[in-house]
Design a protein around this nucleic acid. Structure first.
Lengths: 196, 196
DNA sequence: ACCGAAGCGGAGCAGCCGCTCCGGTAGGGT
DNA sequence: ACCCTACCGGAGCGGCTGCTCCGCTTCGGT
């Protein structure tokens, strides 16, 4: 009588994963403007299949990005050493290196900035990395290396800004800018900030 | 016999200016992906006219941007006071304010970054502002306020990076980041940079 | 083995964009 | 005043993109 709610078919589940993988790959390689046909092709799947699993291109990209951000956050927290300042600067450097190889990564992260129109769905991608940044900031405050008037929001914003140039200039160039920014974040260079 | 080389007709000249104005307006208001039809409409001109004056959309945008960058550079040098550090930080703040109102401005400037594919034409837009930055950096080095290992290229890059976030976050937010970056640029916070 | 239904694929639709083409218009030298 | 010619306008072409539709396939419970 009460048939089980619908045990999803095995091929359906497999194709869903294929789509997510293909979308994640393309979005990180080429940025957020991908052709749906190409996603379907890479996933070895038809258009109909794509649109059965996800109501819209946006929805697919959101779902794929959630995976990407989750694994990014996992890798980043695995790299923590406990030394606050070096963890923070390592995190930023690694994030930008990642962004260099995947120009679309922070591009998507940027679209999740608070106050952006729509994109409420993509906001929660940001929730994968946000807490990690908050933690890094808290630790660096506690150790006294990070100037106390800096918020996690500031660090996020700085990361997004640098992420926009990292893929389009040679690595030494953006490393210099990161270096300068980190110097500005040090407690020793504090100068009164305009309030939040 | 020898007819004068072709004294351009008056309406042709007028329409050329209209096209440049319309293109400049749209590109600064909405960014660099504008519909040619919309440019023509705002210029109150037909498509044929547009493409007679400029061989391609790119060419029109390049020409329009040259005007925009020239007037930006003029306004910026008019605002110089002679006090090196305050001139530099004012320049950056003003540039970002301008970018806030015209999200496409630094967007275009960014596309002129060295090493970008193609875009050789747009490079010379950058030549309007580049020398000004070089001058500001030179003066700030001379006054001893700017750390000596910073190049004009570093400042350009920093400006582009901040310009990418300025239009999408509230002004106080990006002002904080600018403030932090300026602190990092001060001679007092010098920390050995990775070489150029 | 059977069979209903969930799932599949890809041709096709509608809309957008850069650009071209050509019949009509009007500027300006004579 | 005339006429030749440079110039104008906008319909239309080809290509790309997000999305839909529907005939066929294949899964998996019985």
């Amino acid at each position: 009588m009460t048939s089980p709610p619908a045990a999803t078919r095995s091929d359906a589940a497999r194709n869903r994963v294929r789509l997510l993988d293909a979308a994640a790959g393309l979005i990180t390689e080429r940025g957020s403007d991908v052709d749906v046909r190409e996603i379907a092709r890479r996933a070895e799947v038809g258009m109909g299949t794509l649109y059965r699993h996800f109501p819209t291109k946006e929805a697919l990209l959101d779902a794929a990005l959630e995976h990407v951000f989750t694994s990014w956050a996992a890798a980043a927290s695995a790299a923590l050493t406990g030394r606050a300042w070096s963890d923070l600067s390592r995190f930023l450097g690694d994030a930008l290196t990642r962004q260099t190889a995947s120009p679309g990564l922070l591009d998507a992260y940027c679209q999740a900035l608070p106050g952006q129109a729509g994109n409420t769905a993509r906001q929660h991608c940001r929730q994968q990395v946000g807490p990690l940044i908050a933690e890094l900031v808290r630790a660096a405050h506690a150790s006294g290396d990070l100037r106390p008037d800096i918020t996690a929001e500031d660090v996020s914003l700085l990361l997004v800004a640098l992420g926009r140039i990292a893929p389009v200039v040679p690595e030494p160039s953006w490393r210099r800018i990161l270096h300068v920014s980190l110097d500005g974040l040090r407690a020793s260079s504090a100068t009164p900030l305009p309030h939040p």
